[in-house]
Structure formats: structure tokens, C-alpha cells
Amino acid sequence: MKVIRASTFTAERPWGALDIANMDGITTRLHWTDQPYKWHVNDGDEVFAVLDGRVEMRYRVEGVEHSTVLETGDVFYASVGTEHVAHPIGEARILVVEREGSV
């Protein structure tokens, strides 16, 4: 049993994470960041839930870049092959559920 206070979690570096669970190869991690990640494509599906803060999620569909701002409570689903990058607007805490070892 764990209780995690996401609103107070910080990390030593951007995108630092707290491992919450590994369920048969699917990981759930809490990330803290104040810096963008990098453009990437996951080798599996990814669920990205903003628990605190705001995040501009940029993604490409057939080579065309799109953007949406995720508010606290919003969820972004990236299917296999979705190229994307997260740009926090200030500090953000994000819950990420994905295949173990994914980028």
C-alpha cells in the first residue's frame, strides 16, 4: 500500500521520476519537471495524466505538428508510433503509464 502526495513531489532533475508500480511490465511513474522532454516515439502505448500544473503537448500526425495545452486533470494518450514532446508551462507533475523500458 502506498499513498503518494503528487502535489509535493519534486525531483533532483527535470523528468526525474518516482516509480509507483510495475504491473506485469506496465509501469506507473510520477514525474516532476520544469523543462521540455525531447521529441520521441514510444514502442508501446502511453498514458500521460497531468496531476499538477500545465503542459503543452506537441505531437505530429503525418508529419504535421499539432499542439494542445493540458491542464491539471487532463490526460493525453499516445498510441504506438505517435511522435510527441511535452513542454511544461512552469513546474508540472505528470503520471505516466507505459511499457517498462519505454523511452
Results as ranks from 00 to 15, higher is better:
residue 67 S to C: 13
residue 88 P to G: 11
residue 95 L to H: 03
residue 10 T to Y: 10
residue 37 Y to R: 01
residue 72 T to E: 15
residue 26 I to Y: 11
residue 23 M to T: 13
residue 35 Q to Y: 07
residue 50 V to Y: 01
residue 41 V to N: 03
residue 12 E to Y: 05
residue 14 P to D: 15
residue 69 V to N: 10
residue 100 E to A: 14
residue 11 A to W: 03
residue 82 T to S: 08
residue 43 D to V: 02
residue 79 S to G: 14
residue 94 I to Y: 01
residue 34 D to G: 08
residue 64 V to S: 06
residue 31 H to Y: 15
residue 7 S to Q: 14
residue 49 A to I: 14
residue 63 G to D: 00
residue 85 V to T: 08
residue 85 V to M: 13
residue 70 L to M: 14
residue 74 D to C: 01
residue 78 A to K: 01
residue 20 I to E: 00
residue 29 R to M: 11
residue 35 Q to A: 15
residue 93 R to T: 04
residue 34 D to K: 07
residue 34 D to F: 06
residue 77 Y to G: 03
residue 98 E to M: 02
residue 1 M to F: 06
residue 26 I to D: 09
residue 46 E to S: 06
residue 47 V to E: 08
residue 24 D to C: 05
residue 78 A to M: 13
residue 41 V to W: 00
residue 32 W to C: 04
residue 26 I to A: 13
residue 86 A to Q: 11
residue 93 R to L: 07
residue 103 V to T: 05
residue 69 V to P: 06
residue 76 F to I: 09
residue 23 M to S: 12
residue 49 A to Y: 10
residue 71 E to V: 00
residue 17 A to Q: 15
residue 61 V to M: 03
residue 81 G to P: 02
residue 13 R to C: 00
residue 27 T to S: 09
residue 64 V to L: 05
residue 99 R to H: 08
residue 20 I to F: 04
residue 46 E to G: 06
residue 46 E to C: 06
residue 44 G to W: 05
residue 93 R to Y: 02
residue 12 E to P: 04
residue 89 I to M: 12
residue 19 D to G: 10
residue 84 H to D: 07
residue 55 V to E: 02
residue 17 A to P: 07
residue 52 D to Q: 13
residue 90 G to I: 10
residue 25 G to R: 10
residue 80 V to I: 12
residue 101 G to S: 06
residue 93 R to C: 06
residue 5 R to E: 09
residue 19 D to L: 10
residue 73 G to S: 08
residue 29 R to I: 02
residue 12 E to V: 12
residue 22 N to C: 07
residue 27 T to F: 01
residue 36 P to A: 10
residue 44 G to D: 10
residue 16 G to F: 01
residue 60 R to G: 04
residue 17 A to S: 15
residue 8 T to F: 00
residue 89 I to C: 07
residue 62 E to P: 00
residue 1 M to G: 14
residue 48 F to Y: 14
residue 15 W to Y: 02
residue 97 V to G: 04
residue 2 K to A: 15
residue 11 A to S: 13
residue 60 R to V: 05
residue 40 H to D: 07
residue 10 T to H: 14
residue 65 E to M: 07
residue 63 G to N: 00
residue 80 V to L: 13
residue 10 T to A: 13
residue 47 V to H: 10
residue 42 N to E: 10
residue 58 R to Y: 04
residue 92 A to T: 02
residue 32 W to Y: 13
residue 68 T to S: 09
residue 2 K to C: 10
residue 1 M to H: 11
residue 32 W to P: 07
residue 73 G to D: 12
residue 63 G to F: 02
residue 91 E to V: 00
residue 37 Y to Q: 05
residue 60 R to H: 04
residue 21 A to H: 09
residue 89 I to W: 07
residue 90 G to L: 08
residue 25 G to E: 09
residue 97 V to E: 05
residue 21 A to R: 12
residue 51 L to C: 08
residue 35 Q to D: 09
residue 28 T to F: 08
residue 73 G to M: 06
residue 4 I to Y: 05
residue 27 T to I: 13
residue 56 E to A: 14
